[in-house]
Amino acid sequence: MQDLGIAFQTAVGNSGGNLDGRPPLPSNDWLMKRNCSLSPRQVGWFYFSIVCFSTAIALFFAWQGTWLVLPFAGLELLGLGIALLAHGRHATDYERVSLTDGMLVVETASASRMTWDEFNPCWVRVELGESFRALVVLRSGKRVVRVGSYLDPHRRRKFAQELVAALHRL
């Protein structure tokens, strides 16, 4: 496995042989994912510590006679909790493009939704728009899949070049 960046990995492997004695086709696998520095458990402990600290400060001021601090502290904690929950839902998002056994498979996970697209690699066109921020577009007939949203523009171009090269090798 060759690491090409924080969230972009390419694996080229050769696993065993085919049943008919032919050498196996090379396997290309590109995994693109978010770079999250905190695990869900760590985010939970972080939120718990903020709740304890903020509640302690709010209770101190409420004890001093400024009761209006408590509802605002509650709103603050509610807003932070919603933001951390939204972040946590997308912490494990990824895109995987695999070229194995004569099929190009694009697997995408976003929150709790998974999509799986299979293409015949002989009919796939790889396009990269003129815009610096354009995603890599895979077209086959009327089907279109956009990938590379977790890559910076330079790595996105490198991914497109590697995919085109792998498709031409078939």
Rank of each mutant, 00 (worst) to 15 (best):
Q42D: 01
W30M: 04
L163D: 02
G102T: 08
P40D: 02
G16Y: 14
L128V: 10
F46L: 09
R169S: 12
A7C: 12
A111C: 11
P24V: 07
R125I: 05
L80E: 02
P121N: 00
N18R: 11
M114I: 01
A111S: 13
A160P: 05
H90E: 13
Q2V: 01
A160S: 04
W67S: 09
D29K: 03
L163G: 08
Y150D: 05
S54R: 05
L31S: 11
P121S: 01
A73T: 14
A111N: 02
A91M: 14
T55Q: 13
F61T: 06
C52Q: 08
V124M: 07
W116V: 02
N120S: 13
R96V: 04
V105R: 13
G141Y: 07
H154E: 14
V136P: 10
S131G: 07
S112W: 13
L167Y: 05
S39E: 11
R125L: 13
L77A: 02
S98W: 02
P153Y: 01
G21E: 13
L85R: 11
W30V: 03
P24A: 14
A166W: 03
P71A: 03
L77R: 07
T10K: 12
L135G: 01
R34Y: 02
M114L: 09
S27D: 02
A11C: 07
L151T: 08
V51N: 14
G141K: 13
L31V: 15
A11M: 13
Q161K: 15
